[in-house]
Design a protein around this nucleic acid. Structure first.
Length: 260
DNA sequence: ATTGTGGCCTGCCCGC
DNA sequence: TGCGGGCAGGCCACAA
């Protein structure tokens, strides 16, 4: 599903749309437009304008317009970005590769004949005009030691729940969190505020490494733990039976032998 | 303020 | 072969 690695791929793809005039905008399902501005305002802000920058903050893709407005795109778990018909990622876990036209929720037609399309079968993503980027915590790809410390300090939440809280740290989703904690040898249910300085350093090291690895491999579902994330799955490191827990409302797979 | 829970949304997979 | 239940999780509203 689209976590930081996929959205970064979408961002790079979206750069191909920069500088090109938007001629038509179609919102095929009003539910796809989120936030205070409705579909009409969003359409009006885009039409006859050009995208001037493609930025990513966590899982939020922001396309700046020459009007000063910003188009925010989030992709939920099944959202896909296509520019000129080319998808930003190849396989998307939990989504379908059929790409039915009815799943196209936002269709931005460009004056040169190209297009920028968001396809989202389950409508869990959305588009918003001028999204509030301040709500998001530091981006997981560039978070500093001090920022990570602040994100965890004093929290009674489970560590994994904290990592998934986009207001505290932006970009980590369920699959990447499991992979990251497995690599860092930290149990997902640990209290976030209980990490020692050494454990925080270890977490940050593996956060950076995991983000870069999954981007290089092409998706958040490309981690080493992924294949064992099922009943009967075994830890790829030590062979112990993996445990399944619900943490932060999400299915979590972890190794009770080496994650402490 | 923090923390946890449930609902949204629908394609897909499994068992019958 | 068709049907129905359960599952997946990013995000948000809501409760305590």
């Amino acid at each position: 599903m689209p976590e930081l690695p996929e959205v970064e791929a979408y961002r790079q793809l979206a750069e191909q749309a920069l500088g090109r005039m938007v001629s038509t905008v179609r919102v095929t399902d009003p539910r796809f437009v989120r936030g205070p501005s409705g579909p009409a305002a969003l359409v009006g802000a885009l039409r006859q304008h050009r995208f001037v920058a493609a930025r990513r903050h966590g899982k939020l893709l922001v396309l700046d317009l020459d009007s000063g407005h910003r188009l925010g795109l989030h992709f939920g778990m099944t959202g896909r970005l296509l520019v000129d018909g080319t998808p930003g990622v190849d396989g998307l876990l939990y989504s379908s590769d059929r790409g039915l036209p009815v799943w196209d929720r936002l269709i931005v037609g460009l004056a040169d004949g190209g297009s920028l399309v968001v396809s989202d079968p389950r409508l869990l993503g959305g588009a918003s005009l001028d999204p509030d980027e301040q709500r998001l915590g530091p981006d997981a790809r560039s978070v500093t030691p001090a920022e990570l410390r602040r994100a965890l300090a004093g929290s009674a939440s489970a560590l994994k729940a904290r990592l998934l809280d986009q207001a505290k740290l932006a970009g980590v989703g369920n699959l990447m969190a499991d992979e990251l904690l497995w690599r860092a040898s930290l149990a997902p249910g640990r209290r976030a505020g209980s990490l020692s300085p050494a454990e925080q350093r270890r977490l940050l090291h593996h956060l950076r490494a995991t983000v870069e690895l999954l981007m290089a491999r092409g998706g958040s579902h490309m981690g080493d733990l992924m294949a064992e994330r099922h009943p009967g799955g075994r830890c790829p490191r030590d062979g112990a039976g993996l445990r399944r827990s619900t943490i932060g409302g999400r299915t979590s797979w972890w190794c009770p032998a080496h994650q402490r």
